[in-house]
């Protein structure tokens, strides 16, 4: 069993002004998140951080906080199984 907490370093600007490039966050691997939560997930062979906009069944729509973010509006929804954890702080 994996340790329930993990540290990630943000790379990119799509979560500004909430998270800045280079900033580190701690996630809980136990939570999949609810709308409004920040989550780390795998999509298109990349690990990404975004905010959950809405959840429809197994489909989670994510969105960056920055207007120019690349997110579910361009790459579609994320499956719940692809979510690695919820950002705690």
């Amino acid at each position: 069993m994996k340790f329930p907490l993990a540290i990630y370093q943000v790379k990119g600007h799509s979560m500004e002004p909430t998270l800045y490039s280079g900033q580190r966050v701690v996630i809980s691997r136990l939570g999949k998140g609810r709308p409004g939560n920040l989550v780390i997930f795998k999509k298109n062979a990349q690990t990404m951080v975004k905010r959950i906009e809405k959840i429809e069944g197994d489909h989670v729509m994510v969105r960056g906080d920055h207007p120019d973010s690349t997110d579910s509006r361009s790459f579609g929804s994320v499956r719940r199984s692809q979510i690695l954890g919820k950002v705690l702080f």
């Binding site: 993990a6 540290i7 370093q9 790379k11 990119g12 600007h13 580190r24 690990t47 920055h66």
Partner: peptide, 13 residues
């Protein structure tokens, strides 16, 4: 140590 989490904008913003 930390893993990288991409916060992509339209690359670059």
């Amino acid at each position: 140590p930390a893993s990288i989490a991409q916060a992509h904008c339209d690359v670059p913003c």
